[in-house]
Design a protein around this nucleic acid. Structure first.
Lengths: 217, 217
DNA sequence: ATCTGTGTAATTGTATGCAATTATACGCCG
DNA sequence: CGGCGTATAATTGCATACAATTACACAGAT
């Protein structure tokens, strides 16, 4: 009975760095050297390098003469990603509504309650928490589609989007709107109403796109 | 004037292993150990590990108790990927028709001529060549869209699809049909007719899907 | 015969060391 | 004063060594 999933240091470094890029701690354009990361994170360069390779493959980092630089996302990229989402997310959510089980619904419910809590609290670092909960919601949603291709396509896009939205969610009113849209999706999922869920998800994406569109680059 | 892109051993290993997975040399389910790869490829484990991390991130490998195993793709996954392609490829190709330049068109032309050559020759290993040229064609096509999100979404799907199609392209008649569809796309691209190009590309995808659909798993 | 426990061999994970590359700074010459 | 070449320092790339984990085989017991 030894099938404990050993989480290696390299994996932890990868997740930490991914979060730090998505949260904006490592700003776009910033150059990261293996040595400085190694000292900052207290491990040797080997696991750092492996994490970097994965982040590079994910298009979060790219090499640039000296070290790796955090890749930026343009507003045009964001618009394209929304276009792709609008083209495929409906089907994924439709399937999710059919397949989702009560356990997943429960986890979603908890995430939404927590999201509401942080929305109303609106403290200084609640913005990061909201972003994490948003990611968790979409992770659960896409995974519930039961399709690896849909999941990986959509989750990849969602991660990249997160990198762009630094402060846009930080406004209380917008966070509240986003929450209500999530609630609509949840209700349709809980009712196993595929068409309603799909429409709610597309509505959510369209609104998010419009909120981004009227933003400076 | 020293900006030669240094291609590291790790990069070469990555590309080689990716090809070997896509070509089927490493069959799905096969377990690869770092040591054996290291001996087989004549390098130390370090670059092997970095290549493996990237392939893992690309969902081509996954860890499994002892070593990494080549992930398989089900027919249902293939159908989903075609669905996604059909939903987004039209727009990407529409843009490509507007943006594509003569140089890219020239490279495409050469690739198609070579594809025709191997189709008519139909030797034993021409199947691999055709697959490579098919990948090159789609690589050029998607890149010409000028959109990183469209490009990475579509190229990722196309690579995964390649892993599935081992023998299906090996039949001469089907390879010839695929070539003709490519030619149609090319003609529309060369005429910078976005709508015709999009329709030709979608037609190509639909036909490919139907060819797969009537296949055993 | 099957299950269990232990020993062993194979494999992975991390650190370190060294070689090689590259960018940057500085000085020299025009 | 500016361009160019060189020296140097910083950084990456790879290999090796060692530690630790894990699977597998085999032996023994029930």
């Amino acid at each position: 009975m030894r099938e404990h999933k050993n989480i290696s240091i390299a994996d932890q470094i990868f997740e930490q760095m991914e979060l730090d890029i998505l949260s904006g701690k490592y700003a776009r354009g910033e150059v990261l050297s293996e040595l400085s990361l190694s000292k900052e994170l207290g491990v040797s360069r080997t696991p750092i390098r492996e994490a970097i390779r994965r982040l590079e493959q994910e298009d979060f980092l790219e090499e640039s003469g000296r070290g790796m630089v955090v890749v930026g996302i343009t507003k045009a990229d964001m618009m394209d990603m929304y276009e792709i989402r609008l083209a495929i997310e409906g089907e994924a959510v439709r399937r999710a509504a059919e397949l989702i089980d009560d356990e997943t619904l429960g986890i979603m419910r908890d995430a939404l309650d927590l999201q509401r809590f942080y929305c109303e609290k609106s403290g200084e670092n609640s913005s990061d928490q909201i972003k994490n909960l948003d990611s968790q919601f979409h992770e659960l949603l896409y995974r519930a589609s039961g399709s690896k291709p849909y999941y990986s396509s959509l989750i990849g896009i969602h991660k990249r989007m997160t990198k762009f939205r630094k402060a846009s969610v930080s406004q209380k009113s917008r966070a509240m709107l986003s929450l209500q849209e999530h609630e609509s999706i949840y209700d349709a999922l809980a009712a196993h109403d595929g068409e309603a869920a799909a429409q709610a998800a597309l509505n959510h994406a369209r609104n998010a796109r419009d909120r981004i569109r009227e933003l400076e680059d």
